[in-house]
């Protein structure tokens, strides 16, 4: 009988944090290598085209004679749309998509935790999203001579990081919600696109919507994140801010903890219900 030879010994069995770490990178890998390197059409679709969409909103402000700082607001909002789209279509809808494609059952059967898989999706998607956002920000800032007056770099970094943690935590939570909603996941994702652009003030200061609407919109981490970043990037226009940056940072911190905990709870619950009702590998509702 011919024995198969292996070139390297099998990797040691991973458990705990090592398993979490490996699972996360295993899920991030196809997004970084498969999507970024092997499918290069993203360079056109994910950078040039969204750039044009953002520029068109700049011209709207120019058409109605808006002050210069509004151009900066639009540029920042246009860059941040990349993160929201990533959350909706590559995080929230992803588990549903994986279920339809047959991957979810493999995830569940494997020893890797679902939270690590979701975090891997986030890390993998984040690379492309940051590229898209950076290109919009840099090109538009240069093209329209946007002037940034940063009042506090550490606070700016803190607001951005907190916004991302809260946002991706929310994406993980949505992944469970969307998975439970079946075919309607697409409609939910669509429903949360432009209405959130409006409610979160992607293209204008959110306080223009009034206190209560802005307060309700603050449940979306990007609302406070963008408001805080605008206040810090355009230091002369603090009066256009909704709340003080410090208060926004604290709320974002609370949202981060809440969304991550909620995501963990809902995923566990959904997996439990799915196993009990035999719906985890069901392709059609």
């Amino acid at each position: 009988m011919t024995a198969f030879k292996t070139t390297s010994p099998p990797a040691a069995k991973a458990t705990g944090a090592t398993l979490f770490w490996r699972t996360m990178w295993a899920r991030a890998y196809p997004r970084i290598v498969g999507s970024l390197i092997r499918e290069r059409s993203w360079l056109f679709f994910e950078t040039v085209l969204p750039l044009a969409a953002t520029v068109s909103y700049v011209f709207v402000y120019q058409a109605v004679g808006a002050p210069e700082e509004y151009v900066g607001f639009v540029v920042l909002g246009g860059a941040m749309t990349a993160f929201w789209l990533n959350i909706l279509w590559a995080m929230a809808s992803q588990l549903y998509w994986d279920k339809e494609g047959g991957n979810l059952e493999i995830y569940v059967l494997s020893p890797g935790p679902l939270m690590a898989i979701l975090l891997g999706m986030a890390v993998g998607g984040f690379v492309m999203t940051v590229t898209r956002a950076a290109i919009i920000l840099i090109v538009c800032s240069l093209a329209f001579s946007v002037t940034y007056t940063i009042s506090s770099v550490p606070l700016l970094i803190a607001i951005f990081v907190l916004t991302m943690i809260a946002l991706y935590g929310m994406g993980m939570m949505f992944a469970a919600v969307f998975l439970a909603s079946g075919r309607e996941a697409w409609h939910l994702a669509n429903l949360l696109q432009e209405p959130i652009y409006l409610a979160s003030g992607f293209y204008f200061p959110v306080r223009a919507l009034g206190f209560w609407v802005a307060a309700a919109s603050s449940l979306i981490p990007l609302t406070l994140g963008m408001d805080g970043m605008r206040q810090l990037l355009f230091a002369g226009d603090a009066t256009l801010g909704f709340l003080s940056v410090e208060v926004e940072a604290i709320i974002l911190l609370i949202l981060s903890v809440f969304f991550l905990a909620a995501a963990r709870f809902m995923l566990t619950k959904l997996e439990e219900i799915g196993r009990r009702e035999g719906r985890l590998i069901e392709r059609r509702r």
Partner: peptide
């Protein structure tokens, strides 16, 4: 809701942008 909310929100973004300035 999806058929109405998305286009209405899309146009309301412009309405708010326009109204803030004018």
């Amino acid at each position: 809701v999806y058929s109405f909310a998305r286009p209405i929100a899309s146009v309301m973004i412009l309405v708010v942008m326009y109204s803030v300035i004018t």
